[in-house]
Computed example of a mutant assay.
Amino acid sequence: MKYNPPSNQSPFAPSVYPAFGQRAIISGIKRQRQAAQKASRSPRAARTLTESDLRIPGRVLIKRRQLLQKVPLCERTILNLEKRGQFPRRFSITSRLVAWDLKEVDAWIAEQQTAARLPAVPQAHPVQRKALR
């Protein structure tokens, strides 16, 4: 095979992209940046938990995004654990918003830590098989 060196032609040159000029590509990039800035300023964005939030007396509620920051599990795993009764239950605040009690989540995390420090106990029970005739 023969080696073909790369050309020094600009990737925005009209011969490479005849339908797009450099201005069209740059304006598209600008639109993407503006949309990203608007999305980051969204009023629905969840605030992050701070140490002062954790010290407030009484019940502290956390939303889904805050829970996912605190517990390194995916949403589906958390839902499955809730159904089995192995994770604190969510409760609905409105028809579209659910929350968890921070104290219950912290207690669950502490429980998981103590269980991890205990000696390993086999989880599965041996399956009894029928004798072959």
Rank of each mutant, 00 (worst) to 15 (best):
E104M: 10
P72D: 13
R133P: 15
K70Y: 08
E111L: 14
H125W: 10
P5R: 12
Q9N: 06
S52D: 12
A36T: 03
A99T: 07
Y3C: 01
P119S: 11
P122V: 12
P119W: 08
R23V: 08
P5I: 06
A36N: 06
L102F: 10
P122W: 04
H125I: 12
P11M: 09
F91T: 12
D106H: 13
G58K: 05
A46H: 02
E82K: 04
K130D: 14
D101H: 06
D101P: 02
L54E: 12
S42F: 00
L54N: 00
K63S: 08
I29H: 04
Q112I: 00
W108I: 05
I29V: 10
Q113A: 15
E82P: 02
A13T: 03
A124D: 11
K2V: 12
K130G: 14
K130P: 06
A45C: 04
S92Y: 12
T114D: 11
A131L: 15
P43L: 07
H125S: 14
A24S: 10
N80Q: 14
S95L: 11
I109W: 04
R117D: 13
P88F: 06
V127W: 07
P18M: 03
D106W: 07
P72F: 08
A46N: 00
S52M: 03
P5L: 11
A35D: 05
L102Y: 13
S42E: 02
Q123V: 14
F87K: 03
Q37C: 01
R41P: 00
I56C: 04
P119R: 10
N80M: 10
R44M: 03
S42H: 09
D53Y: 01
T94I: 06
A39N: 04
I56E: 09
L68V: 02
L49P: 00
K63Q: 11
R59D: 11
A115F: 05
R76S: 15
A115Y: 01
I109Y: 06
A120W: 10
T48M: 03
R41T: 03
T114V: 14
R23T: 10
F87C: 08
I78Q: 13
Q128G: 03
L68T: 05
A13P: 00
N8K: 12
R47L: 09
L102E: 04
Q66Y: 04
R65I: 00
A19C: 04
C74R: 13
S27Q: 12
S27K: 07
R96F: 08
S27M: 06
I29Y: 07
V105R: 03
K130T: 14
